[in-house]
Design a protein around this nucleic acid. Structure first.
Length: 585
RNA sequence: CGGGGCGUGGCGCAGCUUGGUAGCGCGCUUGCUUUGGGAGCAAGAGGCCGGCGGUUCAAAUCCGCCCGCCCCGACCA
């Protein structure tokens, strides 16, 4: 049975009347648009505005209109049910937070401009929370004392604020958004593993129930700290991330850290040989000039890290994956032209590993065992016959970006690359927050131990947007039943016709009494408008009451997904429609 | 933050090059007609042309500064 709590359980007569009123299109606030809004690019952005689900207040700030809120509330309800099912307990923490706690964790300095900062009237430094690790750890530090208090899993659905450098794609990347965030507290890594596993299970159920496609992939823990992290990714061209997927063995990872087995290039003769290459700089130009394929070149990139200049090298046909390099050398930036000249003695386009023994050099592992050409660190010259590891010393590591078609690191299949929307993530934090914030417990031996934590997020609005992105067709949104604003869109063609009106009202009441959520379109607008808007809004079933089918004592049912139409005889129509919902749900 | 684009009735746009009383479509209001695929006819309402300053007899239009929004990139617990 579909839930009724979403619209508020009705126990009183007044409540029932109110509920009915709200479900009539003539009274419902859902301002639709015929044309795409000029500022929208992503399909979900256009459709959610056009269907009257959301309105933009300012860059990255959205108002959820009644229908949009219904969708998000349904997603939130699924999330609550599944979080409760793994023993998580809902609580609520403030959005406005003292800066001091963030100073203790070290993130006050680490995060920078993305965090909204302000002072209260007393001059105290405050922040608007971008997440709640600090606060939840503060709470745990005060209230958890013994191993007997563990494990705990706490969650909330709370607003987060981030001063995004670039809000984009409608509700996909906003400055204010609600996140389901949960936090686990355990005695040790093994116990954390259990909670981590429970979360993966809950997340899979949540996204399955919401009716969207998704992958669970390995991810870069980044600023969250900790060793292990996964992301839940919904495939969509509107996404901002890319994942590498192995169709054979199931290997799945964010390209930020995905590994692959690159093809092996030919192995030309070794032996250093300097070649004059006047004004030949780019990989393209050099490979053409020397008449060798790009995979026989070393692409040398000079960056400036905290420790000083670092030469990063990948094969000519590869690209540097910044996130991988960052894990090795920390934050860094590309060197400027002047720095390149000073450090290497050559202009950009002619730099290479030879003779740069005093700076740190990191070579992609695909360079190991090959023979390559590279810049000579002398403007106008390259060198061929270079054997990495022999002709120069470097640390070898995977710092290249995975490409579509490269071999999976675990089996022989070819990797696929897909664009995705990040809808959830899970991190093993370990003691990254519990140690600085003093969240400890006494173990069985009476010894003080840091609590071992995990952190787990879901963006409900992104789940909604992902559903729109994945299922929409040329007519509009196609909601999965579980998160649709209404299960049935009941279109009354001629409200002025007393017979049609009576049939529609009766069907409406019967469906409602079965717990089916119905939007009755009782407006005096032309049928074309009703049909077009019903398809734009995308409820799973559209039921049409009009004279055409009423002549045969039937109503017409359109299954929104696929737009198949069928005729349903009137006596027993409510039951048949409810059965149909069970089928498609 | 770097690059690009755009700000003109509620929405989508034209007008700007070449300064001279602001226009189109949709929507909205009223009336009549219509009622199974974003209806028809008629009559209406609605705009400091993003803001400020400058040039000019005269600025939506030219110039300068600022603000806002979108896109690409950088960034992104």
């Amino acid at each position: 049975m579909p839930d009724r709590d979403v619209t508020g359980a009705c126990t009183s007569m007044a409540g029932i009347c109110r509920l009915k009123a709200v479900m009539r299109a003539s009274r419902l606030f859902f301002p639709t648009l015929k044309e795409d809004p000029a500022e929208a690019e992503a399909v979900s952005h256009k459709l959610m505005i056009r269907a009257g689900l959301v309105r933009q207040l300012a860059a990255g700030l959205y108002i959820y209109l009644p229908l949009g809120l219904r969708v998000v509330n349904k997603i939130n309800r699924i999330i609550r049910e599944e979080m409760d099912a793994i023993g998580a307990q809902e609580l609520s923490m403030p959005v406005l937070q003292p800066a001091e706690i963030w100073q203790q964790s070290g993130r006050y300095e680490a995060i920078g401009e993305e965090m909204f900062r302000l002072k209260d009237r007393g001059g105290r430094e405050m922040v608007l929370g971008m997440t709640h690790e600090e606060i939840v750890t503060w709470l745990a530090a005060r209230e958890i004392r013994s191993y007997r208090d563990l494990p705990q899993v706490w969650y909330q659905l709370q607003t987060k604020l981030r001063d995004e450098a670039r809000p984009k794609s409608g509700i996909l990347r906003t400055r204010e958004f609600v996140m389901k965030d949960s936090y686990s507290f355990d005695v040790d890594e093994a116990a954390l593993e259990e909670n981590y596993y429970l979360h993966t299970r809950a997340y899979k159920r949540i996204f399955q129930r919401a009716g969207i496609d998704f992958y669970m992939v390995e991810s870069d823990p980044g600023m969250m700290g900790g060793a292990t992290a996964h992301e839940f990714m919904a495939p969509s061209s509107a996404g901002e991330d890319e994942v590498a997927l192995c169709p054979a063995c199931g290997y799945a990872a964010n390209v930020e850290l995905a590994h692959s087995m690159p093809s092996q290039p030919a192995r030309p003769a070794a032996g250093l040989e300097e070649v004059e290459t006047p004004n030949v700089r780019s990989i393209d130009e050099v490979s053409r000039f020397l008449d060798i394929t790009p995979d026989l070149l070393i692409k040398s990139l000079l960056v400036i890290a905290d420790e000083g200049p670092v030469l990063a090298m990948v094969r000519g046909d590869h690209e540097l994956q910044e996130s991988k390099l960052r894990r090795l050398i920390g934050e860094h930036r590309p060197a400027q032209a002047e720095e390149i000249g000073r450090i290497t003695g050559a202009e950009a386009g002619f730099i290479g590993p030879l003779g740069l023994d005093d700076i740190r050099m990191i070579a992609d592992e695909s360079l190991h065992g090959g023979v390559f050409a590279a810049g000579a660190n002398k403007t106008g010259y390259h060198v061929r016959g270079i054997v990495p590891g022999t002709d120069f010393e470097a640390g070898f590591a995977d710092i290249r970006r995975v490409r579509e078609g490269e071999k999976c690191p675990h089996c022989d299949a070819s990797l696929k690359i897909e664009r995705v929307i990040e809808i959830g993530n899970i991190f093993k934090l370990g003691t990254k927050y519990s140690k600085p914030l003093g969240a400890t417990y006494l173990d069985e031996d009476g010894k003080e131990q840091p609590i071992v934590m995990g952190s787990y997020g879901i963006g409900p609005a992104r789940v909604a947007a992902a559903a729109v992105e994945q299922l929409a067709d040329g007519k509009g949104i196609v909601w999965p039943l579980a998160i649709a604003p209404f299960a049935v869109h009941l279109a009354l063609v001629q409200p002025a016709d007393s017979q049609q009106k009576a049939v529609a009202e009766k069907l409406y009441a019967e469906l409602m009494s079965r717990g089916v959520e119905v939007l009755l379109d009782d407006r005096s607008v032309s049928p074309g408008v009703k049909f077009a808007e019903a398809e734009l809004l995308g409820c799973p079933l559209r039921v049409t009451v009009g004279k055409r089918t009423l002549a045969e004592n039937a109503v017409e049912v359109q299954i929104r997904r696929g737009r198949e139409q069928l005729s349903v005889q009137l006596p027993g129509a409510a039951g048949a429609i409810a059965d149909l919902l069970d089928e498609i749900g």
